[in-house]
Amino acid sequence: MLMACRECDVLQRVPWVPVGKKVRCRGCGATLYHHPRGGLDRPIALLFGALVLYVLANIFPLVTLDIGGATRETSLVGTAWALYNHDMKLLGMLVFLTSLAVPGAILFSTLYVLAGLRLQRSLPGLRQMLALLSHIHPWEMADVFVISILVALVKMSGMAEVIVGAGLYALIGYILLGIAASASIDVFVLWRRMERIDRFPRGQLSLEAGR
């Protein structure tokens, strides 16, 4: 197949490499695509786990602060809400989007796309979802948020008792599973699978092509 590097525009014929291998650009060395191990089942399993932990991270408090018996706790949405309520509406919205809404949207739409491809059905909006993923990806900052919690924890530990909540453990787990899932996904490979669904509707696809 023919590919042009997104970084240096060199046109090249690239082979369909075996599972676990990646293809680099002849011009600049950028990765053109990689063929992830584990097919579609691995990212689906990982993302289902991530989904459960994402829900838990939103239900349980992340951190509780205790100053002489007076306690206060916060969650993901609570952090954005606090900024919103302190005359920082735009900043609150930015925190809401980057720490909660975009990670959630990426989780749901990736699962939807993977499910559609796994079932070999052209579910409504499948292409739009996959296209959306490439656009919103840079704005996902849940991992940055976790580092920020750790910084805040150390900062507060001197003046009050800090209790780490179940939500923080869930959030860390969600991020680790998310990293593992994105390592087993390549958007270019997903588009190739998408193309095959259109060409061969369900039933006509051989087992080999579905892997």
């Binding site: 602060l65 302190h86 940055v144």
Partner: peptide, 21 residues
């Protein structure tokens, strides 16, 4: 680029937690 958001998040977390009258 995205890692510069650390400070903004820290400020948000402290604002949410440290409200002890």
């Amino acid at each position: 680029g995205r890692w510069s958001m650390v400070d903004v998040f820290v400020i948000g977390i402290l604002t949410a937690l440290v409200q002890m009258g």
